[in-house]
Design a protein around this nucleic acid. Structure first.
Lengths: 254, 254
DNA sequence: CGCAACTTTGAGTGAATTCAAGTATTGTGG
DNA sequence: CCACAATACTTGAATTCACTCAAAGTTGCG
């Protein structure tokens, strides 16, 4: 699938990282010690891939889901006209392609936008979990419905003007990265090109550039050199009409 | 919740209709006789509502999912500016708010765009199913992931120009309505206003009107009087670059 | 150091919007 | 059955937002 990358069994630090990310998932819902172990045991090999790697090719049968350990991964449609539409962005801690448990094939590519490290969870193992652990199953199901909620939000945001779209995206990334400790209230690393941002917001890279300048001039957000700086997160959220409720980051009463 | 509508236990024709719609669901995956009965047994009362009824209000706790028997239902965000964004359209046979099993609250409204008839499936019953029937659970999960796949497609389509968006929507509705016998290759009833279509495609009603005229003049689709006529479905699909794969309408090998 | 990829800025174009007015179409009470 | 209101649809004109095309400036990497 991936060329030139080798799969490795998880080392001690890998396991520690996996556990840490599972803890992030646990912010969504409490797990018993046994459930935590069962979930961790579904994850087998780990691989590191360079930027641009196609993790899942459209119309290809999928046999495993993936826990993203490091890097940024996009779901993208490549139109015959050459233009690219990014419909979702995955961050470290995201469980990718969990929906592939029920949808064996996708009509789009899943691509690493930056160098990334991913851990695979074979469907075989996950399938077994769904047959023996109803509560864990509901958690996995929950994660896929949160993805759907993000999709809906993106659709709604695409109705706004350019500045609103970009600002909303910056807010969403701040909130999601903060969940896994990769952002604070004032800044975070965003190693994406303006072209990437353009394909996520449905704009051209030229217009994204102008929009970022406007946001900088109005002191709402400073995006430069792969770093996002936010002087006042509440001001930015107000401008973008961002309400993090749709991310369901608080613990769900199960 | 709904004003002036009364809930009624399903009558004989209702049961027949429910069974028919479950059969449509079965095009997705085979069910055993027992599973079919268990699924049907989760559905209790039925109610008819007039156009404009808010079936689920944003930020309200949800205690039941819904099988849509008749009518068109939209998921919509009402922006403070007064503008409305429709992120999904539900058709007869759709199982609504299945995701509310894991997401107790939504940030948007669910509204009947036309008079509608809905049957409710209490979470309590569905929850019990998820704890005893792994295969049925996977089918329900599957239905929510198909919703997510449709959302992704909508996001991608919003990157196209107006004519493409409208044409794609017409194609999607034709395919989905055909699944439940409400469309054939050449026409179907679409009792929505141009304003509704505008809020689904992210356009203004004025521009939807102009776009529909263009589609009519180029002989791709004739939308008038609540009726959609398609001289050549392949031509329209080609123009819209519509590929029904994302609807996952063929049976999934479980 | 030099190439490649990305970013920035300018000028002109075009698609979709807003504003505005007028025409069906539908439903309702007299 | 008609007059009237309300809603939906249609068309025109002017404007705006975002795009395309083009070129210069940066940055990073081999």
């Amino acid at each position: 699938m991936a060329t030139g990358t080798s799969r490795v069994d998880p080392g001690p630090q890998d396991v520690a990282q996996i556990i840490r990310l599972i803890c992030a998932i646990e912010r969504r819902d409490a797990l018993s010690q046994e459930e935590r172990e069962v979930l961790a045991s579904t994850i087998s090999s780990i691989r590191a891939v360079p930027a641009g790697t196609v993790l899942v090719r459209a119309h290809q049968t999928i046999n495993e889901s993936t826990l993203l350990l490091e890097g940024f991964v996009a779901r993208q449609y490549d139109q015959p006209t050459g233009q690219r539409e990014i419909t979702a962005l995955h961050l470290p801690g995201d469980f990718l392609d969990l929906h592939s448990l029920t949808l064996k094939e996708l009509d789009h590519d899943v691509v690493a936008l930056t160098p990334a490290r991913v851990a695979s969870a074979p469907h075989e193992c996950l399938r077994r979990v769904t047959e023996t652990h109803p509560h864990l199953t509901r958690l996995l199901w929950f994660l896929t419905t949160v993805d759907a909620a993000m999709h809906r939000q993106w659709i709604a945001v695409l109705g706004q003007a350019a500045a609103g779209r970009v600002a909303h995206l910056l807010c969403e990334l701040q909130a999601r990265l903060a969940l896994v400790g990769l952002a604070n209230e004032h800044e975070y690393a965003l190693p994406l090109t303006q072209m990437d941002l353009a394909d996520m917001t449905g704009l051209t890279s030229v217009h994204v550039n102008r929009t970022l300048r406007k946001l900088r001039e109005s002191n709402l957000a400073d995006v430069r050199g792969g770093q996002v700086k936010i002087p006042d997160i509440h001001a930015l959220r107000g401008f973008a009409e961002f309400d993090p409720a749709y991310l369901y980051m608080r613990r769900q009463p199960s």
